[in-house]
């Protein structure tokens, strides 16, 4: 069983070289995540959320600052840390079952029999029992994403990073999988970091919601969610917290296109701000 770990992010900076120029993607990110904590990250597109996860998982070693897991510097990838990528990234030559099995390929704790059982359980968990031997090209986007979730979960890592895992799902499946994720999180005590565009989801699942802002990516605010679980999405406290996050989220001009859109709107309706305030 996984034991949860403390994740310490200290003064993290990350640049990408784009056509010879250095583009700052993350700037001075500091965050301390307690063992077994559930942290949601929201922020507009391009503010560096995926990049942050990529650093934590250990796929990128060219950055400044410190990344510590239980006090140890993170170097390279490890089976202790799992990730659901933003794109499903299934191997197209493997069936659903085999793709999930990749998660246990190098797991030395389970016997072959236990592995097989665990894979079956996770196929059922994501509701793809009838598709166990289907190839990725036969799946819809949402189904592929569910396979990717199962692949990451099956190994029961100490830290699980989720990059918009429910983005491609219908509302019903999404709500169901949110529940299941919460159940696994409570049962296993895994430290989870969830990147999402859905503020309600962030508030529903997170102990804290980290709001990031773009260019360069920084932490704008961290909102505590001190609500007991199971949370009620329509309770007054829930709605208030959601509004609070949404407010932080909303007044960062989002992407360039959205920025342009805003300017266009302003030009067309000079009194838009009064309208908004009203």
């Amino acid at each position: 069983m996984a034991h949860a770990a403390t994740l310490e992010i200290k003064g993290l900076n990350k640049q990408y070289q784009v056509r010879g120029e250095s583009l700052s993607v993350l700037e001075d990110i500091s965050l301390s995540i307690k063992p077994g904590e559930f942290v949601s990250i929201v922020g507009s597109s391009g503010c560096g959320k995926s990049t942050l996860l990529k650093l934590i998982i250990g796929l990128e070693d060219d950055f400044q600052g410190e990344l510590l897991l239980d006090g140890n510097r993170i170097v390279g990838t490890s089976l202790e840390r799992g990730i659901v990528f933003q794109e499903h990234r299934l191997f197209p030559w493997l069936t659903v079952e085999q793709n999930i099995g990749i998660g246990l390929l190098n797991n030395t704790k389970l016997s072959e029999e236990e592995k097989r059982k665990s894979v079956q359980e996770h196929i059922e968990l994501v509701g793809l029992k009838d598709f166990a031997s289907a190839y990725p090209y036969q799946l819809s986007g949402g189904m592929s994403q569910r396979v990717a979730i199962a692949r990451a979960l099956v190994n029961r890592p100490e830290v699980l990073l989720l990059d918009e895992p429910f983005g491609a799902l219908d509302a019903f499946t999404r709500a169901y999988l949110q529940q299941e994720l919460q159940r696994i999180w409570e049962k296993e005590g895994i430290t989870m970091i969830l990147v999402t565009h859905d503020v309600e989801e962030a508030v529903y699942l997170g102990d804290r919601v980290v709001v990031m802002q773009p260019r360069p990516g920084r932490i704008k605010r961290i909102v505590d969610i001190p609500l007991p679980r199971e949370r009620n999405r329509s309770s007054a406290e829930f709605v208030a917290l959601k509004e609070e996050v949404l407010r932080e989220f909303a007044d960062t001009p989002v992407t360039e296109t959205e920025l342009v859109a805003e300017l266009v709107v302003e030009e067309a309706y000079p009194n838009i701000h009064e309208l908004k305030a009203a």
Binding site: I57, L59, G76, T77, S78, L79, R81, G82, I83, F85, E87, R89, F91, I102, G103, L105, N106, N155
Partner: peptide, 13 residues
């Protein structure tokens, strides 16, 4: 590169 990253995450030898 995306597939290679998956392999690294799952600790392929």
């Amino acid at each position: 590169k995306a597939q290679i990253e998956v392999a690294r995450v799952y600790g392929f030898t």
